[in-house]
Design a protein around this nucleic acid. Structure first.
Lengths: 254, 254
DNA sequence: CGCAGTTTTGAGACTGATCAATGCCTGTGG
DNA sequence: CCACAGGCATTGATCAGTCTCAAAACTGCG
């Protein structure tokens, strides 16, 4: 984990919020200049981390909040004997780390799934945000509600869907999220996770996950040649997932 | 579902926020008079509902936010063929309905588990709350983060715990939440849900849930004579759940 | 007393887990 | 340029936890 990787001088190379490439994405709501200025002052730096790096661990009290600028992270929880449940994946524009600033201690861990760049916000300033920029405070709640929506969906999957439905469901949702970010090339996306990691997100064993992927492939719903994943039949996939195609709303990001 | 049940005149009998019995509970943070005054003006009324009543349904846009004053509710999602996953239980002081005010449409349903009284807040006023009472805006985010914490825990259970661990885990957490509210009499609590409902929260069949409860009973960890549940060995229960006994933090409520 | 909704029990079926190999790809060093 | 190591993916065989089906026993209530 390095703050300034070789070939990247500290500070100078950091993305200015007003120039943030994510802002250009239609998926995000437009900010006023004043808001942008504040977010810029809120941002204390960037964290550049290699794939596999632990961003923070359950039980620790990370003093920061993070927005994913590029790359993927994932949130997870462990049982003492090593069983792992991946709670959600974090993509560009996603926000995490709220619980520390609220409970003083993390109740889950976060790891970089790919090489990532994260915007870092110090938690001491969160209060200023609420006080001086109620719109942004509202956005924070918005993001928390969105995370809740995703967790609700995951809980439904893991609790009540069969293996086939589950795999179809995540693949579908991951595709839709990437598509909204403009990170899909037509029906093709890059999925950086291993089957083991997918299994941990689904509450399945990696062996059975593999066999289930094969089944989806043989039904010509998807084609998966790591890391490329092609959706061959979006509607069929949704049906296999026992899911509808949801509308993704315009969202804020900090 | 009635707004004013027989024997209770409209308005006059409603609980004044400053006299709210929940406020007396040490589990909640103290509010200033000004905050109390705002919350009072925010509150548009009370909803009294019988057990089994649907408070709102997925897909609808309920225009309101709710705080549970007394009784239990539960949030759930359905698959088209009727499979149901209960996402969380709502106890006195718990808050729900945020997603509508944020996404304009509910992505889950809520039902009264027991007879309940709910405080109703109109969503048009949420913005005022953020603008004029940033502390309360922060509290709203706090509550969202707390819900997320519970969902994370549930997802870990449903995804990675065995049936025995799962049952032990919810029983434990429900006990702790009730205890914090002062609703436990020593190690005895009233649990209003049926085994079917518990099963739907755990992602298990009701038959297997029943057999698992028996197993916990035979290990003298609990004693369950609906609706009374006695925790006979709190530490042993936590061990069976592969869980630690968490500290529940002081919390706000709206 | 009888009904309706729960809880409880038993038996058999099946989904998904575990165990164990084998194959495959990529990067590394000789 | 080839050999090898370390991750991953893949496959087959067996096992076990949980589900489904079905029926009986309870409980609270009208």
């Amino acid at each position: 984990m390095t703050l300034t990787p070789p070939g990247r001088s500290p500070k100078t190379d950091q993305v200015k919020c007003k120039d943030c490439p994510l802002r250009r994405n239609d998926a995000f709501r437009k900010f006023t200049d004043k808001e942008l200025e504040f977010v810029q002052s809120f941002k204390s730096g960037e964290l550049v981390a290699d794939a596999g790096t632990t961003i923070f661990l359950e039980g620790n009290n990370s003093a920061h909040l993070y927005t994913v600028l590029s790359g993927w992270v994932f949130r997870y929880k462990l049982l003492h004997d090593g069983r792992r449940q991946i709670l959600n994946f974090g993509l560009p524009g996603d926000f995490f780390g709220l619980q520390t600033s609220i409970f003083g201690e993390m109740d889950h861990s976060v790891e970089a799934l790919t090489d990532v760049v994260l915007c870092v916000f110090p938690r001491e300033k969160v209060w200023q945000l609420y006080k001086n920029y109620p719109e942004l405070g509202f956005d924070l709640t918005w993001l928390a509600a969105r995370e809740q929506y995703i967790l609700d969906e995951n809980l439904l999957s893991v609790g009540r869907r069969t293996a086939l439905e589950r795999v179809a469901s995540v693949v579908l949702h991951v595709f839709l999220r990437l598509d909204q970010l403009g990170m899909a090339r037509g029906r093709i996306i890059d999925v950086p996770f291993t089957q083991q990691q997918l299994a941990d997100a689904l509450g399945l064993s990696h062996v059975h996950t593999n066999k289930t992927i094969k089944k989806l492939t043989s039904r010509t719903l998807i084609e998966w040649n790591p890391p490329k994943l092609k959706i061959k039949d979006l509607e069929g996939l949704a049906q296999a997932a026992k899911d509808e195609l949801p509308e993704l709303p315009l969202r804020p990001f900090i």
